[in-house]
């Protein structure tokens, strides 16, 4: 707990604590290790009745097989395109809004916070059917821009929540000095606030990217053209194809799909405990 109580911790309790941490880590990290190890096993080793944690010989053929799968590479491209476009749009839209939320006591603030809450409570099934009906006349069903727009709107709550906290942490005095010099509000935001917000913008961008990269439900309903499918959709279909699952290449593709999120998370993890919650703690 605290250092004060830590000092009094007896050796037995200490050992138990380490054992508990170890137990947690095995539970949380072992599955990924197993996935990676599976992806490096040859098909023959895979079929073995007694599985081993470490592959006997490291075999990269699953990766080459997975990448030869035409649909997979295309879906990788689609996922990248969608995630990047979503991230850019979210930043453009979220920055001015979160600025306004943090700085002005306007009536829009409670409305926005209300919307953020409501958007969390409502099951997506209720939204996806009308979305479908709205996007159809706009010729946006089954298109990448359609999905990007939907992701934009559904990533906004979290982005606003995060970014608000960062904006609030920027000292007001700097802006006021600029305002005295006659700079307009937009100018102030771009020239003064944005540079100071860089860590916040980067964190928001990464989060948005990850959530778009991982998203499944909207993509499942909105993208039917096999050429437009995102990585999670293709992976999900892999599993079911007539019960003939090629686990090796599937594991390899799964590892590839996890890499971007994992890398971003490694970058983000220092901020996670502090920055992420600044919005929440302020309530």
């Amino acid at each position: 707990m605290s250092e004060a109580s830590g000092m009094r911790t007896r050796p037995v309790a200490r050992v138990l604590q380490y054992a508990a941490v170890l137990g947690y880590l095995v539970f949380l990290a072992f599955p990924l290790l197993w996935l990676i190890s599976s992806s490096l096993k040859s098909p023959r080793e895979f079929a073995a009745i007694t599985p081993t944690l470490l592959p006997k010989n490291v075999d990269f053929s699953n990766y080459t097989n997975a990448l030869e799968e035409q649909g997979l590479v295309r879906s990788l491209g689609n996922s990248l395109q969608i995630s990047i476009l979503t991230t850019i749009l979210v930043l453009i839209v979220a920055l001015p809004v979160s600025y306004a939320l943090a700085r002005f006591r306007s009536r829009l603030r409670p409305i926005t916070n209300g919307w953020i809450l409501v958007s969390q409570v409502f099951p997506v099934i209720l939204i996806v059917i009308p979305l479908f009906m709205i996007l159809r006349p706009l010729h946006l069903t089954n298109t990448i821009p359609g999905v990007v727009l939907v992701y934009l709107v559904w990533s906004l709550p979290f982005a606003l929540w995060m970014l608000q906290g960062y904006v609030a942490a920027v000292p007001r005095e700097l802006e006021e000095a600029a305002a005295v010099d006659g700079a307009s509000r937009i100018r102030t935001i771009v020239a003064i606030v944005m540079p100071l917000l860089r860590p916040g913008l980067i964190a928001t961008a990464m989060f948005t990217f990850i959530s778009a990269w991982n998203e499944f439900f909207f993509a499942l309903v909105l993208l039917q053209d096999p050429e437009l499918k995102t990585l999670p959709l293709v992976l999900a279909r892999f599993v079911g194809a007539e019960g003939q699952v090629q686990f090796g290449p599937l594991a390899a593709a799964s590892v590839l799909a996890t890499v971007p999120s994992l890398v971003f998370f490694a970058f983000l993890q220092r901020r996670l405990t502090s920055g992420l919650l600044s919005g929440a703690v302020k309530g």
């Binding site: 941490v21 947690y24 880590l25 949380l28 990290a29 599955p31 990924l32 197993w34 996935l35 599976s38 990850i210 990269w213 991982n214 499944f216 990585l231 999670p232 959709l233 992976l235 999900a236 892999f238 599993v239 686990f247 599937l250 594991a251 799964s254 799909a257 996890t258 999120s261 994992l262 971003f264 998370f265 490694a266 993890q269 996670l272 405990t273």
Partner: peptide, 26 residues
Amino acid sequence: RGVARTLALIPWAMPPVVVAIMWRLL
């Protein structure tokens, strides 16, 4: 605990579809 803290975040970073596939293997 720094290492532990980082490793403990793994499940969060993984796409749900991959999580499902992984547990099917397990």
